[in-house]
Design a protein around this nucleic acid. Structure first.
Lengths: 368, 368
DNA sequence: TTGTAAGCGTTATCAG
DNA sequence: CTGATAACGCTTACAA
């Protein structure tokens, strides 16, 4: 326990801002002067003096918190609009203990960095946060090294956190729970105390699988990524459930998980063909793209000899030939919803889990 | 002028934090209590008292700024390490007028969001910033609506900015110049006052084109994106330069720029085939992928009947068949370099433009 | 409705 | 080498 603390502490220490002893003293003075020239930075006090009232009143007029005379309020609003005054967020942060920032945690594994999913989520989050005057601080997490996350949290740089993925053994989530900062996770979690926002992955994957089963496919294979990611298991479960519903046997030998490099697809596909499969579902587009490519090289006709589908649709497959049947989720909306929930949480409201069911099954040539 | 100011001001106003009048008063108190229970938040003052010295001394020991007795320093360092004390960044920001954040501006056009380029840059930036105790605030810019950027800057949320793309008519850059905040741009600019970090796009594109010319291609076409992006013009120039160098005529009718939707590729390819081309270079992988796909549908054999190459390599083309000849840049390094430059700039150092020349021409099947 | 004054947690100034 | 004390710009009891 004690040892653990020391380790963590020194980890954190390593992240302390490195004060570079340079000649920036004069520079900064100069810079500020200059900045003042272009754009005389007003303070709430300047506004108060100019208007002959107290800064308390100005503060109240701006925040709308206390009661202020209507004429005074209008006077203030007009003045600040005209002079483009903006309260100093840092000062407010210090006084209120709020930063008006949220942190977004991104995985930076080799795979994830090339996936459009996270960027798309960001767009949705950004729409929401910016309409509330919040900004987004991005923190990358490599493996289970959460030191970046720790720094952001311990330095009070954010009022809350969005995790963009959930893990079976979720170190980041555990850390956030422990320190009591508001956070929501995109994905699902066994832990009922964690607020989650997720696509209906189970239902969607089950539905897509069912559709293929209904097309008469009997020997359907599944290829997916890391089982450390909850989503991999959820999708797998959806796949299995479709078989159960159809009253069919599912052959576990046709399921390949933890396929984290597309280079492994080639060998897997060969094995699968020996096992006489008639279809493959891939958990994401990278895998599906690779399967399509290998099929072409091996002269396996898609869809005639093998049907192919993907559980997740992105632009990666946009120009695939044949076009690939897949699930389509609204990532932007997912991000927006997560952001909304987090802001509510920060605001002290009660927030519950959300599952977004607006996915689409898109049938294309690869399963015709 | 006056009118313009008013417009901008009201734009900014719309972005003011929306104070939601909810019941968060008690909530916040409770939350802080709880947080205090788990993790008694120390202040520099607590440390000072515990050690029986003044907070000035503690501050100096931590920052290493003033001279402090060695024994005192060690005492302080040991104490803060043991108790995992971290100075409150907001307070420091207020006192020092530095936030230890940099802003990164992302385009959120439909195209850009799906490109891995920006995410990859981010990874590089993040490595650098986090080693200096800085964090990254991401700001999305749609079209030329810079209100998000304005908010981040005017609210003093960042000490500097990285623009991840340059435009011919660069509104964001103009704004940043005007307000005098340190910034660097990823890309190139006509404006010599703007610090730029860029890949050697001109040279690289010229080289790739030259290679194809050397293979005997005479009627080489070019398809590219928005000419509002400086990079599109740079790449085009590189293409042209290769012809000049080879002493060949280049047919301008074979150049299609401002192709912003891949759906337009089909028509363009048909036109090009009528013009008897023997090769196409695409400015990015989305376009190249689409060209490959259309070729397959139109039964145009690649590379036998048509060579195809891309000026930018990403995982999008990873599983393309045939594999596509392309330029490979180190986006991560690009981001890291930009971040390094910005931190130097913030630190008051003199910084000059940088061009990264470590690109690779990767020859694959599509041009065999 | 409005104002005064005491924080918020650092850093910076200027004495000692 | 060290320590009061005053910024930093805003919020918020508490008074008036």
């Amino acid at each position: 326990m004690c040892r653990r603390n020391r380790v963590l502490a020194s980890e954190a220490r390593a992240e302390l801002p490195c004060e570079k002893p340079t000649q920036n003293k004069e520079f900064w003075r100069a810079k500020r002067e200059k900045s003042v020239m272009n754009n005389p930075k007003l303070t709430i006090d300047d506004v108060a003096k100019a208007l002959g009232i107290s800064k308390t009143t100005v503060s109240r007029a701006i925040s709308g918190k206390g009661r202020v005379g209507n004429s005074t309020r209008i006077k203030v609003m007009e003045y600040i609009e005209k002079h483009n005054f903006r309260p100093n967020v840092m000062a407010r942060a210090l006084a209120q203990q709020r930063t008006f920032n949220i942190g977004v945690v991104w995985p930076d594994d080799y795979n994830a960095v090339d996936l459009p999913f996270f960027q798309r989520c960001m767009v949705g989050m950004s729409e929401i946060t910016s309409s509330y005057g919040y900004d987004i601080v991005v923190s990358l997490i490599a493996g289970d090294d959460i030191s970046g996350l720790r720094r952001v949290v311990e330095n009070h740089k954010v009022d809350g956190i969005i995790l963009t993925r959930t893990l079976v053994n979720d170190k980041p989530a555990a850390y956030l729970k422990e320190c009591g900062i508001p956070f929501v996770a995109i994905g699902s979690s066994m832990d009922s105390e964690i607020i989650c926002v997720d696509n209906a992955n189970f239902e969607a994957c089950k539905e897509l699988t069912s559709v293929l089963i209904a097309k008469g496919l009997k020997r359907l294979a599944l290829i997916g990524g890391s089982t450390e990611h909850v989503i991999t298991r959820t999708r797998h479960n959806g796949f299995v459930a479709a078989f159960v519903d159809a009253g069919l046997e599912m052959d576990p030998a046709l399921v390949y998980l933890d396929v984290e490099k597309t280079t492994k697809v080639d060998g897997i596909l060969k094995e699968l063909m020996k096992k006489n499969i008639d279809g493959v579902i891939c958990m994401d587009d990278n895998l599906a793209g690779e399967v399509i490519a290998r099929c072409r090289e091996e002269h396996i006709l898609v869809p005639e000899k093998l049907k192919v589908a993907s559980f997740y649709n992105s632009s990666i497959l946009e120009s695939s030939v044949p076009s690939v049947t897949s699930l389509n989720f609204d990532d932007r909306n997912l991000g927006a919803t997560a952001a909304k929930k987090l802001l509510e949480l920060i605001d002290g409201q009660d927030v519950s889990n959300t599952v977004l069911t607006n996915y689409e099954v898109i049938l294309k040539e690869s399963t015709k």
